[in-house]
Design a protein around this nucleic acid. Structure first.
Lengths: 208, 208
DNA sequence: CAAGATATCTTTACGTCGTCCAGATATCGA
DNA sequence: TCGATATCTGGACGACGTAAAGATATCTTG
């Protein structure tokens, strides 16, 4: 429970500047958006000189990577909570909604996460490749709900399709063009649920 | 048929600098990516001073808006071509594939397009609101393929879902994580087709 | 056609940014 | 204890977005 850092009373070397920098970056991101997130602003917010971050991160991109990683962990937690709480018939939709809601509640952070991933054309393995990653958990949920685990390719396609659908929805749900649909359906969550119903989220819902 | 601009022989006022700036921006975008796209670099490429663009655009964002708008027009054309050529059973999938292929062939431009749109939370109306916009044409195609035009909300949901699906796929198809699926399915286009099959692109494919 | 009004472009300048380097200072290992 | 090492500061460099003032070409109007 470290208390806030007003650059007052810096005892020795600051303790854990790396931690403080990531926190500062997150604070700036939520308060002022991605355009205000400069390395110098982060250093300023943490109460150190503009060059100090370079002893903890190779460059700005590496700092953003650290911020993004915390974002992925938060997203993992949000999806895990939804997986634990949701019940069978709408389980996959509930997971998808938890995904989109996270992105909508932390738009700047979500943007940093995907910008970093896209630059490397690589999703973090704790999200996609690890055995307990959200990707694998969604895939296993699909099997638990009746998807055929024999056709491995098809199962991966279904999981990937669900992920792409959630991402696309997360990025587009904020556009004005959907306002009247949200209103007609009685709020953002019903809107998301209705859209997901058109996206074949569950293989159980699929034709053929 | 204006020949290339090597800053040589500038007759009077340059003729049409606005046009030249947008072209220069597009050239930089395709050759060096979005990070290299600075206002100064655009001016340099067009052979004018760093301040010259300010007589044609309020600021950098407005230049990017102009670039983005040309991108939307190109996307419109690509989708229109697919709509004209594709035949009934896979028509919607073919349109979706044309969308994703455009994004994959012009990744930097596609990024500029959506960055600009997201900043305003507004899709360009020539894409979504106009009567002959791709959105409306996709919607009408759905009706032509058998969707119920009576349930207006549901029809809009289906169209929006298709759009979100295409966008999500466009943004994610480049990730390494999908390489083995593309390989297993014999290329990028079969991969896209297979994924779309899981995304309920057409209301005709839908359950219930 | 002359001459002022206007549009276009250049020059210069300011503040901010990412990053590097040389020094200062604090911690740690022998 | 003292040298090695890690951490932080200060100052500097070039690139950026943008504004202001001056130059130059076109347009308008008499």
């Amino acid at each position: 429970m470290r208390e806030s850092q007003t650059a007052e009373m810096r005892p020795y070397h600051h303790g854990d500047l790396r931690r403080a920098l990531v926190d500062a970056a997150r604070r700036i991101l939520e308060a002022e958006g991605p355009t205000a997130l400069s390395l110098r602003a982060v250093a300023r917010e943490a109460g150190v000189s503009p060059a100090a971050p370079y002893h903890h991160f190779k460059d700005k991109a590496e700092l953003l990577d650290a911020v993004a990683q915390e974002g992925w962990e938060m997203l993992d937690a949000a999806m895990g909570k939804a997986m634990a709480e949701a019940e069978a018939p709408d389980k996959l939709t509930a997971i998808g909604i938890s995904y989109v809601c996270f992105a909508r509640e932390h738009p700047a952070l979500y943007r940093v996460m995907y910008d970093a991933a896209r630059d490397k054309a690589d999703l973090p393995e704790e999200m996609h490749d690890n055995e307990d990653s959200p990707y694998c958990k969604v895939r296993d949920t699909m099997v638990a709900l009746g998807a055929d685990p024999g056709d491995a390719i098809d199962l991966e396609l279904a999981t990937s399709a669900a992920w792409c659908a959630a991402h696309g929805l997360a990025e587009m749900a904020g556009f004005k063009q959907f306002d009247h649909l949200k209103e007609a359906l009685g709020g953002e969550t019903p809107f998301l649920r209705a859209i997901f119903r058109h996206m074949g989220l569950s293989p159980l819902d699929r034709r053929r």
